[in-house]
C-alpha cells in the first residue's frame, strides 16, 4: 500500500524570486509554477491571503501589487519578481488597525471572514482612487469580490465609514463626535 520513503526526485526546475512583501525583502527558490497566493501563504507567512476558488472569481486572494490590486491566485510568484506586494498583514501599524479594518469591524462587515482580507484590500484601493465614492461607485469598485455571508449591505456601510475616517485623518481638526480616527 504505502511505498518506501524515497527522496524526492528534485528534477523539477526552480528559480530564485525576490519580492518585497509588506516592506520586507523576501528571496526564495521556488518552482515557476508556484502561484503567488501559495507563495505568500506558505513562504511569506501571509496566511491572511485566502484562497476561495483559484480561478479568479471570488477575490479572497486579492493583494496589492505595486499599488494595483490583483488576484494572487492568477499570478505565479515569479511574476512578482522585484515587485512590491502588500497584504492585509501589512495594514495595521503598531497594533492599531487601519481605518478600513476598523470600519469593517465597526459596521459588522464580516461574518465568516474568509472574504475579508480581499475586501479590505479592494476597499483600500478603491478609496485611494476615489476618496468619496457613492453607492454605485462602491458596487462597481467591489464587484470583483464575492462575499457569501453579509449580503454586502454592511460592506457598503463600512466603505462609507472608512472614507469618513480617512478624510478625518487628512483633516485632523474635524471633529464629528463619532469614532475619533
Amino acid at each position: 500500500m504505502s511505498i518506501e520513503d524515497t527522496p524526492h526526485s528534485g528534477e523539477r526546475p526552480t528559480r530564485e524570486v525576490a519580492v518585497t512583501v509588506n516592506g520586507e525583502a523576501v528571496t526564495r527558490e521556488v518552482e515557476p509554477r508556484l502561484k503567488l497566493s501559495d507563495f505568500l501563504r506558505n513562504e511569506c507567512g501571509c496566511r491572511g491571503v485566502r484562497v476561495g476558488c483559484e480561478h479568479g472569481v471570488c477575490g479572497a486572494c486579492t493583494v496589492s501589487l505595486d499599488g494595483d490590486i490583483v488576484k494572487s491566485c492568477l499570478l505565479y510568484a515569479v511574476q512578482a519578481e522585484d515587485r512590491d506586494v502588500e497584504t492585509v498583514e501589512g495594514l495595521a501599524e503598531d497594533g492599531k488597525l487601519h481605518p478600513v479594518q476598523e470600519a469593517f469591524h465597526e459596521e459588522h462587515a464580516l461574518q465568516c471572514g474568509f472574504c475579508t482580507s480581499g475586501f479590505v484590500m479592494a476597499t483600500k484601493s478603491l478609496l485611494e482612487e476615489n476618496p468619496d465614492p457613492d453607492r454605485e461607485e462602491i458596487k462597481e469598485g467591489l464587484a470583483d469580490n464575492i462575499c457569501r455571508c453579509t449580503g454586502y449591505q454592511n460592506i457598503y456601510r463600512a466603505v462609507d465609514r472608512a472614507a469618513d475616517k480617512l478624510a478625518a485623518d487628512l483633516e485632523p481638526v474635524r471633529d464629528d463626535g463619532e469614532e475619533g480616527a
Binding site: R47, L97, Q101, H105, S117, V120
Partner: peptide
C-alpha cells in the same frame, strides 16, 4: 473580527 481582519485567524488551510 480582529484576528480575521489582521490575517491572524486560523482556518483549516492554515
Amino acid at each position: 473580527d480582529r484576528r480575521i481582519l489582521t490575517g491572524e485567524a486560523e482556518y483549516i488551510h492554515d
